[in-house]
Each structure stands twice: as C-alpha cells, then as structure tokens.
Design a protein around this nucleic acid. Structure first.
Lengths: 119, 119
DNA sequence: CACCTATATCGATGAATGTCAATCTATGTG
DNA sequence: CACATAGATTGACATTCATCGATATAGGTG
C-alpha cells in the first residue's frame, strides 16, 4: 500500500487532502462556555463605559447614582448591567448603608488577559 | 457655612451625598461600541473553540474543513463565526485554491489585553 | 464546457439580550 | 411607626444573534 493510498483511504479521513488536522486537545465545551461568560459581560458598550467610570475613580469605587447619570440609562438598566459584571467576576459589590459601591475585582484585567493567552 | 452644608447643598449636587462623582472623561459612546465589537466576537463558546483550534495548529493556520468537524456545527455556521472573527480583526483569512485558511492576526491577543488596560 | 468540491451567502426561526415602567426591599429619618 | 430614598427585581417588548437548510460562487478536473 503506497503513500497515496494511505493518505486517501486510511482510517476515516477519506477526503482529507487540504491539510493535516491537529490532534491536540480542543477547548472543551463547558470551559468555553465559562470563558465566554466573561467576554459576554464585556460585549456591551454601556458595560464598558461603566467599567471605565469605576476604573477612573480615585477611590476605586463608585455608587450607582454616579453611574446612572453619565450613561443616560434608567436606574434599573444600570443595575442590570452591574449585576452581569458582578456575576462575571469583574466587579465587586459592597453595600454600605443605603448605597451600593462597585469596584474592580483586583487583578481581574490580568486574569482576562490570561484567559486569552491560554485559549 | 459648615462642612455639612457644603457637602449637602454646595453647587448643583443637591442630593449628592453618597460620594463625589469624578469629572474624568468617560469612555465615549462610539469608542465603547468599537471596543465592544471585539468582545462580542469573543463572547461565544464556539468562537472561542475555533480560536483554540487555530491557535493550537503547528502551521498557525487551519482550513474550514478542519474546523467544522470538531465543533459539531454545520459548515455555514462555522463560516459565519469565522467571518465575525475576521471582521473583529482577530483572524486573518487567506484563500489558496479551493481552500480558505484562517490564522490568528499577529499580536492580536496583546492588542485585546491593551484594550482592557486602556479602558 | 460539464462536473465536483470547498466555502460563502441568503432566508427563516427560535433563543438570548438590552431597555424601560412598575414594583419590591432595605436602610435611614422624622 | 410613617415616610423618603437607593437600589434590586419583575414583566413586557423590540432587537440581536446562533443555527440550519437551501442556494450561490469560485476554483479544480475530466
């Protein structure tokens, strides 16, 4: 049996002539879904703007009242976006008295960069 | 006028008692939309898996036929995802003969990490 | 030119998502 | 306790999106 026969008829790859598929492990479905959650949280312009405000704050934290006005969105909508960012592990929420303060989870930007590198 | 009065009545912030809003520039709407496009492209499990396959390939590139099977998706769907990744500037497409080869745009992972840092 | 194959595009459909108005909860204050 | 305020939750609605089947395009081969 020659090489051509091996290439064209061996195993299950009858017509695999374009390139040799790698047998390296592919990112698993569940892991892909977990990682996609982080990027889903970043995949909205208003959520990026929220992050930019929190990040620019000298104190490192912002309350909802400071986040609602500059975005020109309703308060429930901002609350919704903040919840998504918290659930993605990007923002931290701390309630003090009547107000809720949001801050970046320490090192989270590096963590996300690491997800990209480790794809 | 005491400190309390200053805090509660000074300027236009009649009821701004939770915290002092930063006057730093917020990420602009258009820029936020542009940056969100990149994360939108990453916000799908199957697209992350596509990237992991392309990234793991020794040659640095994969053809569509090698990408369709491991994801258990139809060929039009894979083509659709690849288009989104190309339009986001993450993948590069090169057609050679009948086949289309996709490869990571050089340095794109660092670029995305830079978007995060510069939010 | 006729045919085959790899890939892209189109149209439809069901699911997920962003937004708002209304309401609920919890904290602070008279 | 009655009331006011900050923020979260709910339900509805319109839009976007992932997927598929069918079809179109383009390159290769006889």
């Amino acid at each position: 049996m020659g090489v051509m026969n091996l290439l064209h008829t061996a195993g299950t790859a009858v017509d695999a002539s374009c390139c040799v598929p790698s047998d390296k492990p592919v990112l698993g479905i569940e892991e892909a879904q977990r990682k996609a959650l982080v990027f889903k949280a970043l995949a909205d312009p208003n959520r990026l703007r929220l992050l930019s405000i929190v990040k620019a704050e000298d104190s490192g934290e912002s309350c909802v009242c400071d986040l609602t006005e500059p975005l020109d969105l309703g308060q429930p909508t901002v609350s919704h976006h903040l919840k998504i960012l918290v659930e993605a592990g990007i923002l931290h929420r701390e309630k003090r008295g009547t107000w809720a303060y949001y801050s970046l989870v320490p090192g989270v930007m590096d963590d996300i960069a690491g997800i990209l590198s480790a794809l």
